[in-house]
Amino acid sequence: MLNRLVRWARKKSPWILHLNSGACNACDIEVVAALTPRFDVERLGVLLKATPRHADVIVATGPVTRQIKDRIIRIYEQTPDPKFVVAVGACAMSGCVYRGAYNSLGGLDQVIPVTAYVPGCPARPDAILDGIVKLLGTL
């Protein structure tokens, strides 16, 4: 019973954490754009949180630079279970143009497990929305 309630709550109100792992900012502004009036994810109960300890879903962008790697792992560990990671943008999927650069690891899944990928360079806000909704659908 309690589990059902928790699952319902989780589905209806996923709190997201926005994580930049060396992205070019385009994906990040699209994530923010998804929060503003045109797309307004808040109407779906999605709330942007500033700390990993409150978050259910990590929305991560960027190809993961060497410097930021340990911090990403730390943030992932700080997020309470069950947690989901959405990799937004071609960078987070595979490194995009930065693939092969000496300081980028080429994708988020090199470092932490990823649940959903949203393609695009940058991914459109509606695509990000779709990604999160699809992810919730699997719960």
Partner: peptide
């Protein structure tokens, strides 16, 4: 922090490819 090594990467790409690389220095 967050140094991706773009300037080095640019030396490995040709003139046209680099347009799309430098475009991704900053998204805004």
């Amino acid at each position: 922090y967050n140094h991706r090594g773009m300037e080095k990467l640019a030396e490995e790409k040709n003139w046209t490819q680099n347009i799309y690389l430098v475009e991704r220095i900053c998204g805004i």
